[in-house]
Computed example of a mutant assay.
Amino acid sequence: MLKILKGCGLAIVLTAGWSTVCAGVGVDEQAATYTRQYVQEIIGKFRHIPTPHAVEELIPVEVGGIQQWISVRGRDRRNPVLLFIHGGPGSPEMPTSWLYQGPWEEYFTVVQWDQRGAGKTSTINNPEIVTPTITMDRMVADGEEMVSLLRKRYNKEKIFILGHSWGTVMGLKIAEHHPEWLHAYIGMGQAINGPQNEQVGYAFALRSAKEAHNLQAIEELTAISPYPSPDGPTPLEHIVTQRKWLGYYGGMTWGRTSFDYEANVPLLSPDYTDDDLASSSQATMYSLIQLIPALSKLSLDGITKIECPIFIFAGRYDYATPSEIAAQWFKGLTAPQKKLFWFESSAHMMQLEQPGKLLMHLVQDIRPLAADVGDVAPEISKSE
């Protein structure tokens, strides 16, 4: 159940341990309780797109021999398609995207995709069958099939890909293999080298802990040294410890000590059922366990040429996929057009930390590549 405190603006309070105080308002007298379903319906109705050429689909499609869910939303289907490839592994963006994606939908047809072993896709597939197939090669192949499907379904010669975190591994490989399919590739929190990512992130967390004289953090981080493990994949519990303190010192979201602020956002998603939420939580762990060995050895340093435009969104304080590593790699990359944009007040979650700046770059710097070849809605292209 959700409790709404009248007189406090739009303060939504989850009764599972959250509370709020509104000066001058008697909570007992002014409180009303609503079901999660009711709040989801409110958000869903608000998000409805009533325009003549709208795209508003939430559907499973066959990719890689299984059913995989996509959300496709846009105010005009004549706009370019933007496929968001989420991170994790196993951390779908679909149930969170309702917070920030609305403005994107004026300029793009935005596709959120719950990957193999994630979110709604995990709900409708047998985990005993799907989990063993969660490999890097299979996931990249899924991504290529998804791009082909979207190009055909929405009658597009090319689309945009925006990869985030783990999704940048898939996105960069698709851009390398099939640049002719893309207006451009955008990497947000670009991963390049797994061992270096972990080393730099660990050093940041330990350095920050020592500067703060945080004895608990120092003890826990020292206990997992050497990090990452030099002799094979790093144990998941060591990764969890590193991420715990990396996040505490702002390396995941700058200025915040945890990721708790985002944790309950999916509860209000109009696209997710109770079963989706339950399956997603379990599936994340399965995906991590399956992919950690490959990610521990990840090296994309050998990719020195991409034959389509490429853009990097880099959080200045990102230590989950440290921006300094991506920026150094990007200097040596050859592409027909490339540019790196720094997000000076962000760490790893730019879509939540600086959503306005992200939208500005998508519309002003990246969308014109589609406009130049007529892949935009006529009404908008005239105003541009």
Score class of each variant (00 low, 15 high):
residue 224 I to H: 00
residue 226 P to Q: 00
residue 226 P to K: 01
residue 227 Y to D: 00
residue 227 Y to S: 04
residue 230 P to V: 03
residue 231 D to S: 10
residue 231 D to E: 11
residue 232 G to R: 02
residue 233 P to V: 01
residue 234 T to P: 00
residue 234 T to Y: 02
residue 234 T to R: 04
residue 235 P to S: 11
residue 235 P to R: 12
residue 235 P to E: 01
residue 237 E to Q: 13
residue 237 E to F: 03
residue 238 H to C: 10
residue 239 I to E: 02
residue 241 T to H: 05
residue 242 Q to P: 00
residue 242 Q to G: 10
residue 244 K to H: 10
residue 245 W to I: 11
residue 247 G to M: 00
residue 252 M to A: 14
residue 252 M to Y: 14
residue 253 T to Y: 05
residue 253 T to Q: 13
residue 253 T to H: 07
residue 254 W to F: 15
residue 257 T to M: 07
residue 259 F to M: 09
residue 260 D to F: 05
residue 263 A to Y: 02
residue 263 A to L: 12
residue 264 N to I: 06
residue 265 V to W: 02
residue 265 V to H: 07
residue 266 P to L: 01
residue 266 P to E: 04
residue 268 L to F: 11
residue 269 S to P: 11
residue 271 D to K: 13
residue 271 D to R: 12
residue 272 Y to G: 09
residue 272 Y to V: 11
residue 273 T to A: 08
residue 273 T to K: 09
residue 275 D to R: 05
residue 277 L to V: 10
residue 277 L to F: 10
residue 277 L to H: 14
residue 278 A to D: 14
residue 280 S to R: 04
residue 281 S to K: 10
residue 281 S to N: 12
residue 282 Q to S: 11
residue 284 T to H: 10
residue 284 T to W: 07
residue 284 T to K: 04
residue 285 M to W: 10
residue 286 Y to G: 03
residue 287 S to G: 06
residue 289 I to H: 15
residue 290 Q to N: 13
residue 291 L to F: 06
residue 291 L to M: 15
residue 295 L to F: 06
residue 296 S to Q: 14
residue 297 K to G: 04
residue 300 L to V: 01
residue 300 L to Y: 03
residue 300 L to W: 00
residue 300 L to E: 04
residue 301 D to H: 00
residue 301 D to K: 02
residue 302 G to P: 00
residue 302 G to S: 07
residue 306 I to G: 03
residue 306 I to H: 02
residue 306 I to K: 01
residue 306 I to R: 01
residue 307 E to S: 05
residue 307 E to K: 01
residue 308 C to T: 13
residue 308 C to E: 08
residue 308 C to F: 12
residue 309 P to Q: 05
residue 309 P to Y: 12
residue 311 F to I: 06
residue 313 F to R: 09
residue 313 F to H: 05
residue 313 F to Q: 08
residue 314 A to V: 11
residue 315 G to S: 07
residue 315 G to K: 01
residue 318 D to P: 08
residue 319 Y to W: 15
residue 320 A to T: 15
residue 323 S to K: 12
residue 324 E to P: 03
residue 324 E to G: 05
residue 324 E to V: 15
residue 324 E to S: 13
residue 325 I to R: 05
residue 325 I to V: 15
residue 328 Q to L: 10
residue 328 Q to Y: 09
residue 328 Q to H: 14
